[in-house]
């Protein structure tokens, strides 16, 4: 099983100003900036990581948060392998918005997409307005996993991305197996084209140096 290389697409969704861009920048550049531009352009960053002996290339898409931009969502989340549904733990409305996204993603992408519900700004614990228990129960009820993060203090961010990557690999492998059992013919590649498995024994060397986590 060793030496596989995967490509996955992750999309960040959630209300405006909950910290989507910050989570991405913290993870990819290990930077935190209190004041960056409100996201209008869906930004995109690639990041390569190693998990065990496998290498994973993540394409991370950041989106505009305001309700008015909700209609553009499908453009950005189509073909995603994983989604972070981010809310601000001090803002109950931003949590309500998550429910909307969950329903939408479930209908559009079915179970192919790994959902992660992320309570960001855990550094503001004392102003918490979304009870952690409620959030976790909700996540469980929709088959998603719940995470707490602080992009500001760099808490839980690496874990979040690492975890989703592992789960995406698992998902991919299990559906591969399933498919090869179901259709023994060669047309098992009707899965989304963002996943490519290639032998990476060549790139392995380089990646070891720059690999993170």
């Amino acid at each position: 099983m060793s030496g596989k290389s995967y490509q996955f697409k992750i999309v960040l969704l959630g209300e405006g100003c909950v910290g989507k861009t910050s989570l991405m920048l913290r993870y990819v550049q290990d930077k935190f900036n209190d004041e960056h531009l409100s996201t209008i352009q869906a930004a995109f960053i690639k990041k390569k990581i190693r998990i065990g002996s496998n290498s994973v290339e993540l394409a991370i898409w950041d989106t505009a948060g305001q309700e008015k931009y909700h209609a553009l969502g499908p453009i950005y989340y189509r073909g995603s392998n994983g989604a972070f549904l981010v809310y601000d733990i001090t803002d109950i409305d931003s949590f309500e918005r998550i429910r909307k996204w969950v329903t939408e993603l479930k209908t559009s992408l079915g179970d192919d997409c790994i959902l992660c519900i992320v309570g960001n700004k855990s550094d503001l614990e004392k102003n918490r307005n979304v009870p952690i228990k409620e959030a976790e129960e909700y996540a469980k009820s929709v088959g998603a996993k719940h995470y707490s993060t602080s992009a500001k203090l760099n808490q839980g961010v690496n874990e979040l991305f690492l975890d989703i990557s592992k789960r995406m690999i698992e998902k991919f492998e299990s559906s591969e197996n399933l498919e090869s059992i179901n259709h023994q013919s060669g047309n098992s590649s009707n899965k989304r084209n963002t996943i490519q498995v290639v032998d990476d024994s060549v790139v392995q060397q380089e990646d070891k140096k720059s690999g993170c986590c």
Partner: peptide, 18 residues
């Protein structure tokens, strides 16, 4: 509320908005 959230995220690199 939406406006308030974006005030510091409009042209943050310019000193006028700091």
């Amino acid at each position: 509320d939406e406006i308030e959230r974006d005030l510091h995220r409009s042209l943050p690199e310019h000193v006028a908005f700091q």
